[in-house]
Design a binder for these strands. Structure first.
Lengths: 143, 143
DNA sequence: GTATCTGCAAAACATTTGCAATTCT
DNA sequence: AGAATTGCAAATGTTTTGCAGATAC
């Protein structure tokens, strides 16, 4: 409990620094993203949080995430084509989606821009890297 | 005109080889993707083709692209989070979206799987690489 | 007290599904 | 004839918008 309050307070500061006013809902939504790191959909966030905040609206989740996006608090991912997913880790990294267990793993990518010959003359601002395949634990269990 | 008929014939063969029966609509949709190489949305394809085929239905465009997907005739891209885009180039390559002119450029990526230390033990089946930034011609005109 | 934030209801899109008519073999 | 294809209309699902009440500064 105290942990949660402490965390809320830190998150509040973080959001303020990003230019977002830290309301209860916004703190909870960021907290969910920050603790779970599961690249959730709007629906996943809503279904979890509405249990503790019964009158939370899905509209608020949408509104909040759009504000977070605009203020660079979260990144929007296109992992599934139909539903947007969100990530509180805004540093450059790649995503790996296991086609079996559906888990999404993060992985490091280099920060050099010169690895791609074709892009020598391009200014690269954002990189979205998504691989699909089979993760080690699913590889093991399928043998 | 002759060119188009010839092209239709080639596309027909290509689709047959992929296990897709080459109807008029399917040929036209593939032809659009193949000629334009513009990673279009369903709506872009529909709006263009309905001019020549007035009773074309958007449902048919959806159906056709889903069949193409299943038979590995096209790749689905998640360049914008809200709308699916399609690409008749199924070979591995990356996409660069210019944030100014909105054009999407293709670029080559290496086929080695060992470039990412974190993924040594993962089986990688598909790679989706999307960069955003400014393309050379927009860089030039902004100076 | 004025701005902002929240949440309901409705609207706006993208996509899929059910089904009847048509087309191909 | 039988199977696949097309396209309309309706349904589904995600996201946005309008607006009234509540909250924060």
């Amino acid at each position: 409990m105290i942990k949660l309050i402490e965390k809320s307070f830190e998150i509040g500061e973080y959001l303020k620094n990003k230019g977002v006013r830290p309301s209860e809902q916004r703190i909870r939504i960021f907290e969910y993203l920050y603790i779970n790191k599961n690249h959730p959909t709007v629906d996943m966030i809503y279904r979890e949080l509405v249990q503790k905040m019964p009158c939370l609206s899905k509209t608020t989740v949408y509104n909040t995430l759009n504000i977070f996006l605009k203020n660079n608090v979260v990144r929007q991912l296109a992992i599934e084509e139909n539903e947007a997913r969100y990530d509180a880790v805004i540093e450059l990294h790649g995503h790996f989606k296991c086609e079996k267990c559906e888990n999404i793993y993060d992985f490091d990518i280099e920060k050099t821009n010169n690895e791609y010959e074709d892009l020598k003359k391009y200014e690269i601002n954002e990189k979205y890297i998504l691989f699909k395949g089979i993760c080690p634990s699913c590889l093991k269990s399928s043998k």
